[in-house]
Design a protein around this nucleic acid. Structure first.
Lengths: 123, 123
DNA sequence: ACATGTATGTTACATCAGTAACATCTGTCA
DNA sequence: TGACAGATGTTACTGATGTAACATACATGT
């Protein structure tokens, strides 16, 4: 699974709050922060579909996007990669330290902890 | 300060163990892991100088490279960036959780803690 | 002085990500 | 039914990074 880039992560974040959303809706929610033109948002969405980060669907005639992986699963991959390459920590990772990050709910932290610690393979 | 890429970080890591080193020496230490040709290593070194990640010097007629920033300073930047964008944690960051990472000595962890927590500006 | 081996300088090419325009298609309103 | 708005498809350009070869210069032994 390819890791999302910084920009792609920004888009995933809005879709984790609410999905599916159309390109137009995503632009409205993420565009201001990203300072992107609508075109740019669309290109990025298209590439994310290519990379299987998003799954496209057609609802009421428009194309809408849904994240393929849950927030916890995606972040566990990103965090594993980070800790592995930057800090060279391979085994179980400490996540309790971040539980006040607001990025994830208690439930999601539980899932992330499970993914990060219960061996490298996933369901 | 530009963040080092994954490959650049690998080179920094060998130079944090011992510096300055020549391109040839760096290749001997990092090449096998990176699986790079000597040419590739040299190109990367050159770009790192451009980005002010390394400072070149000439010792005994050969070009040697020294990291511009300490391990602690570099990693603090990388970690701040990561926690900011991925986990959206802006204030003081918890690092105690990683103290068994082996990447840094006690002294270096102290420096890193200081850099990460004592406001955004640095000396 | 010449050859041979390192060291250094220069150039090249692919891919990906950032950033965006142009072109087309289609449905809806007047 | 014709025009316009919005949706989708296609193409383009730049910079960074991965990856590497070619070409040249310099030192050292014979």
């Amino acid at each position: 699974m390819t890791q999302p880039s910084k920009s792609e992560l920004a888009i995933l974040k809005v879709l984790w709050v609410e999905a599916p959303l159309s390109a137009r809706e995503i632009q409205e929610k993420a565009g201001p922060q990203l300072d992107w033109s609508f075109s740019t948002t669309r290109t990025t969405l298209s590439r994310m579909v290519d990379k299987a980060l998003l799954r496209p669907n057609t609802k009421h005639g428009v194309r809408v996007y849904t994240p393929v992986d849950s927030k916890a699963r995606t972040l566990s991959g990103v965090m594993r990669e980070f800790f592995g390459t930057v800090l060279e920590m391979k085994g179980p990772l400490p996540t309790a330290a971040f539980h006040d990050s607001k990025m994830l709910s208690e439930m999601e932290w539980l899932e992330l902890d499970r993914l990060l610690n219960e061996s490298g393979d996933d369901d």
